[in-house]
């Protein structure tokens, strides 16, 4: 474990806590894409198949349970909770995310580390996470002004993978066997997708103005 990876995991946890805060404090999920939440639940469920077979550390197991539990709770809340689901922007959240799932699964069948059930689903989860934010970014562009908590949620979600890239660079130079090219390339694509959001987020922070994404 290095400082970049720990900071990355804490930033990821922060994004989830901010999202939970927004939903429970405001009893509203306006501006949040249910499709992105569903994709993230699928990412964690397919990435952590080794949850009960490989024990790495208490930290690793606890974080996996937190990520799986929180993502399922958010999807449940947005679909079933009486008050919250009324504020869901269903008519704006129309990204065809099933195509993303199909494309990532096909890619995982072609590019993976080993042709085993666990490795193919692991590669699938890595590719899916890279594009999972797309429905959310499209929804932000369509819904005009973005409330602070939603903006912070997306910012922390993008920042965590950028910290992971620093972690991979650090591990590349400090560990001899280190090679995570699937995760690295996918992580670069994932972080690049946030580039324009980071730009507008920085502008809104600098001008102390409301976050506005151009339509």
């Amino acid at each position: 474990m290095n400082i970049f990876r720990l900071a990355g995991d804490m930033t990821h946890l922060m994004s989830i806590l901010v999202l939970l805060l927004k939903i429970y404090a405001t009893k509203s999920c306006s501006g949040i894409s249910l499709k992105t939440q569903e994709l993230y639940a699928l990412v964690f469920l397919t990435r952590y198949l080794d949850l009960f077979t490989d024990f790495i550390s208490v930290y690793n197991t606890v974080m996996k349970l937190v990520f799986i539990g929180s993502s399922l709770a958010i999807v449940w809340c947005m679909r079933m909770h009486r008050t919250v689901k009324r504020s869901y922007d269903g008519q704006l959240d129309t990204f065809r995310h099933y195509f993303l799932v199909a494309a990532c699964f096909l890619s995982a069948l072609i590019v993976h580390e080993k042709f085993t059930f666990q490795e193919i689903f692991w590669a699938f989860s890595i590719y899916l996470e890279a594009v999972a934010i797309l429905p959310q970014l499209v929804l932000l562009q369509r819904s005009g002004n973005v409330d602070n908590l939603t903006g912070q949620y997306v910012f922390f979600l993008g920042a965590y993978r950028a910290l992971y890239i620093l972690n991979w660079i650090y591990r590349y130079f400090t560990e001899q066997h280190f090679s995570r090219w699937i995760a690295c390339i996918s992580g670069l694509v994932q972080t690049a997708l946030y580039a324009d959001f980071f730009y507008y987020y920085f502008i809104s922070w600098k001008n102390n103005s409301k976050l506005q994404l151009p339509a």
Binding site: D9, H12, D50, N60, K64, Q118, N167, A183
Partner: peptide
């Protein structure tokens, strides 16, 4: 190398 070493990240 065991999978535990290869996949130790979240």
């Amino acid at each position: 190398r065991s999978r535990i070493l290869e996949k130790d990240e979240l």
